Computed example of a mutant assay.
Amino acid sequence: MPVTDITTDPENLTMTLTADVDAPVERLWRAFTQPRQLERFWGPPGWPATFTAFDFTVGGHVHYEMTSPKGEKSRGRWEILAIDEGAGFEVLDSFVGEDSEPLDGFPAMRMTFGFDATASGSRLTNVTYFTSAEALEQVVAMGAVEGSRMAMAQLDAVLRDLREYAQGRGTQVELLDDTHVRITRLVDGPRELVWRAHHESELLKKWMLGPDGWVMTAAEPATAVGSAYRYAWEQEGAPETAFGFEGEALLIEAPWRAVTTEKMSGMDGPSTLNDLQLYEEDGATLITTLIEYPDKETRDMILGTGMGDGMETSYARMEETVLASA
């Protein structure tokens, strides 16, 4: 993880984030000054950012919104106060409503971003200045420290070529906290086709099979927000092994994001929340699934079934059957 330190200073009314990365200053600068790059890490997992306006000039405004798995929006606006090309910039960051105007009761914060060369790459120093101790406490209570840490933890994947960063690593399972798991897999194929592979019945039956010897007996994907889906499998020649999953689509933003609930068919109990996101670069697509479990015990039980290995087998089959024919 690139974040090396986040400190709050109630006396000087600041919060300072420091991140060391294995990339030159000019690459780090581009990551923070190009909207499509910022979108990949500015929001923490589960709240990805979309930059809807980007006038990166002194006096200009940058507008962004972060969207939760359930479609809730948290909107912000930067007013660009100063730019030192290639070395740093300064903004006034405000919480805003749908009309892009600052929200009453939420503090505006001056933020500086500095980029410096180090022996191993470069360093980001991000300082947020507050107008009062109450404003600092309010933002910290809203989860700013942990949210910033989780957001910047995504920076490594942005700064490196995607194939260099992820190809050949297979399916990666990361425990983010007691209830959140992030699963990533790079596949060699365009995002549009990877999206279709997740949302068309005939394509699903070609790859979403898990270990060899299993068949998919039901592939009924959700096609719109609020619609239900159902998947079922059984071992060939052994109907007594049948099982399945079902749920509802909470968010669909084709071809890059789909959020669904999931539970085992016929079973009571809480569902998981599955947030699928697809990012394409140079003809390869990074599949990221953020799973929210109801508790640590459920998380550990499901991971203990060998879910990661089954997903790797399925993703490899996707490349061999669906993507190889494109």
Rank of each mutant, 00 (worst) to 15 (best):
A326Q: 07
E192S: 03
V3I: 10
G213Y: 01
R182H: 13
F106L: 06
V173D: 03
P24N: 07
A166Y: 13
L155Q: 12
M66I: 14
G43L: 09
G121R: 06
L273F: 03
T288C: 08
A87K: 14
L193T: 15
E253N: 07
A117F: 11
G310R: 05
V173G: 00
L136V: 07
T57P: 03
R317D: 10
E262H: 00
T272N: 08
E146M: 15
T14C: 05
D188K: 01
F106C: 12
K70A: 12
V194K: 04
D161K: 04
R110A: 03
F130N: 00
G310N: 11
G304V: 13
R36N: 09
D282Q: 09
E192C: 03
S201M: 09
E262S: 03
E11F: 11
A49H: 09
T289I: 15
T260K: 10
L303Y: 00
L290F: 12
A87Y: 11
Y165W: 12
S148V: 12
P211G: 06
R163T: 03
S314P: 09
A31N: 02
L155F: 14
M1R: 15
N274M: 08
A222Y: 04
L193K: 13
E202D: 15
S132Y: 07
G88Q: 11
T131H: 13
L209T: 04
T57D: 07
F51D: 07
G88L: 05
V127P: 06
A133R: 15
R169G: 07
T112C: 00
S265D: 11
D178E: 06
L136G: 07
T18M: 01
T67Q: 06
V259P: 03
A224I: 09
D282F: 10
F56N: 05
K70S: 06
E164Q: 14
H63I: 10
S201K: 09
D20E: 14
T16N: 01
E137R: 04
M152R: 13
G168Q: 08
W47D: 01
F113T: 10
M208T: 06
G306N: 04
I287V: 10
Q167P: 07
Y279F: 13
F115H: 06
N274V: 10
W195T: 02
E319I: 03
T241A: 00
G237A: 07
V173S: 00
V194N: 03
E262A: 08
L28S: 07
I6M: 00
A23C: 05
E137C: 02
K206Y: 00
A157F: 12
E319A: 04
G237I: 05
T50N: 08
A249E: 14
A49S: 15
Q34G: 04
